[in-house]
């Protein structure tokens, strides 16, 4: 689709590696359009309608991009054709048929905030997730690592990924999809979270 390519912020999204254990996931790098990323960061830092959400296992700022008054340059992030294209990329990467409905939420972690180990599993809820990292360049001392686990034991670490801006992790939500975000000690860590639903026959 050459016409859409010029507007697709995720035209470069391709898995650089895939895994089936401890749960099905893939990793992508430099997946967000280079022209969109700085505009998005500027808006997330200065114009986005953040709301603080506090629970017993995480505290962060969030908002739903579908409800936001997006700058013209960022409308492509919620464009139905782009979401459809992204949905097909997720299907291809993880091998599951997905329904048309796609959600998009932005997350922001400030220093001191973290997300404890959890699996995103919710009966009747979303079934697949794509999380895209956005930041001004976090160092290892800043924390905010995306941690993947072999079990529900936080000590049973599978892998620890740096929150490199423009990188992404896609995964199939299951009872085994345990992950977390370590405490942020410096900088600001933004994430775009796309949620998908498995296609059910009938």
């Amino acid at each position: 689709m050459p016409v859409l390519d010029s507007l697709d912020p995720y035209a470069r999204l391709e898995p650089v590696e895939s895994a089936t254990a401890p749960f099905r996931y893939f990793v992508a790098e430099h997946c967000l359009d280079a022209a969109i990323e700085p505009v998005l960061l500027d808006w997330l830092e200065t114009g986005a309608p953040w709301s603080l959400v506090e629970t017993d296992f995480y505290e962060q700022f969030e908002f739903d991009l579908r409800d936001a008054d997006l700058p013209p340059a960022l409308v492509c992030l919620v464009d139905p054709e782009m979401l459809e294209r992204l949905r097909r990329k997720m299907e291809q990467a993880l091998g599951d048929a997905l329904a048309q409905h796609v959600q998009l939420v932005a997350h922001r972690l400030n220093p001191g905030q973290r997300i404890a180990i959890h699996n995103d599993m919710r009966e009747g809820g979303e079934t697949h997730r794509l999380t895209v990292q956005l930041n001004r360049g976090l160092t290892d001392a800043d924390g905010g690592f995306f941690m993947l686990f072999n079990s529900d034991d936080a000590g049973d670490v599978h892998r620890i990924l740096r929150p490199v801006s423009g990188s992404a992790i896609g995964f199939a939500i299951s009872p085994a999809s345990h992950h977390a975000v370590s405490r942020l000690h410096g900088g600001t860590r933004f994430t775009l979270v796309y949620s998908f639903y498995a296609q059910h026959d009938g």
Binding site: T55, E62, Q103, H118, N119, G125, D152, I173, H178
Partner: peptide, 11 residues
């Protein structure tokens, strides 16, 4: 306890 996800956004 682990079967959690982020905040549900009611639109």
């Amino acid at each position: 306890l682990y079967n959690r996800t982020y905040h549900r956004h009611n639109r």
